[in-house]
Amino acid sequence: MTHPHDETEDLLIHRAVSMTAAPTDWDSLEALSERDPELWHRMAQALRDEGDLTHALDARTAIASSIGPFQSRRRGLGFGAASGWFAAAAIAACWFTTLMHTGPAVLPGASRPGTAHESSDMPGAPGLVSNQGATHGIGSPTPVSTLPDVLLGTQRAADGDGYEITVMKRSVEKVRVKDLFQLQRGQDELGNPATLPVRFPATNAMEKY
């Protein structure tokens, strides 16, 4: 059962919990408690709520210390236990999306200025490429979703008027391709990165890995 509304009591309890109660406030609390001893119970509850809320907020807002206006944020992709081909497929999707937007085909692992690869997040994961990569999939890519922008860096504008901000736009697209190839270490006799065709089992291909 809740206690009837009492503005004075609310204020006194708040001051006590906030450690801002003056000696006269404590006197008033004493006086009120003589008529209603349950007041101490309500104050204890308020103290407890304050402690719980503070701890809950500590935990939830701790993330703030890792975020800054000039810090790039590098979140793991979070695939958890899933690895191997699942991770590789993700790399392929990222890479394929890059190809779709940047033109010339560059295989994962090959260096090209301005091209980012996520392979460092998943060491050892083989890359997958489509033989239709740079030019087309079967049909148009289907937008799945967009993710919030990631701030990569900022700098003062050269002319001193404001700042230049580098932002990574993230989107997820699905596209169907005819064939997949797995990147191999080394090169073939023509100096091209070596690839092998990938054959998934007919059923539950992803479960296996």
Partner: peptide
């Protein structure tokens, strides 16, 4: 820190605090 508490007070269901903080930092900048 307190801005993250403001976001917690106003953020819609399903939103991610870290993403909102990042966007807030970007907007402040």
């Amino acid at each position: 820190r307190w801005l993250s508490a403001v976001l917690l007070s106003h953020m819609p269901n399903g939103a991610d605090l870290e993403d909102l903080l990042q966007e807030t930092a970007m907007n402040v900048c």
